[in-house]
Amino acid sequence: MMSDQVKKYAIVNTSATFNKFNAKEALDAALILASYEMPVALYFIGDGVYQAQKQQNAESIGAKDFIATFKALGFYDIEDIYISADCLSQRQLATEFAFTDAKLVSKEEFAVRLNQADVILTF
C-alpha cells in the first residue's frame, strides 16, 4: 500500500498532554507517517508545549506513559521537533524536554518551519 509520492508532514500539537486523547492520537499518526517513510516534523504550540516537558508521570493519573515514546522518536527518523519559545516562557516552563533534541524556536521561525510542510495536521 506504499504510495509512490513523498510529502512533508507537520503534526501540530496544541493540546496539553492529557487533554482528551489529542496528544496520543497525534503521536500515533506521526509514527505511522514515519513508518511509511514520510518526512514528519512535530510542532508544539499553545498548551501543546506541556507535552514536551520532562518527568511527567502519566501512570499516577491512570494514563499510559506515551511520552516515553518521545525519547525514541529518533528511531522513527523523526528528528525535526519544534517548540514555541514564546508559549513555553508564557507558561513559565523549564527547557528540560522529554526529547533528546528539540529545537526551541521563536514564533517567526515556527511559522517559517511550518511553511516548509506540504500537509499540516493539528491536534
Binding site: 496544541t14 504550540i45 511559522a111
Partner: peptide
C-alpha cells in the same frame, strides 16, 4: 479559547 491567538501568532 486561544486557537485564534495561536493562529495569529504565526500567520504571515
Amino acid at each position: 479559547d486561544n486557537k485564534l491567538e495561536l493562529c495569529l501568532s504565526i500567520v504571515t
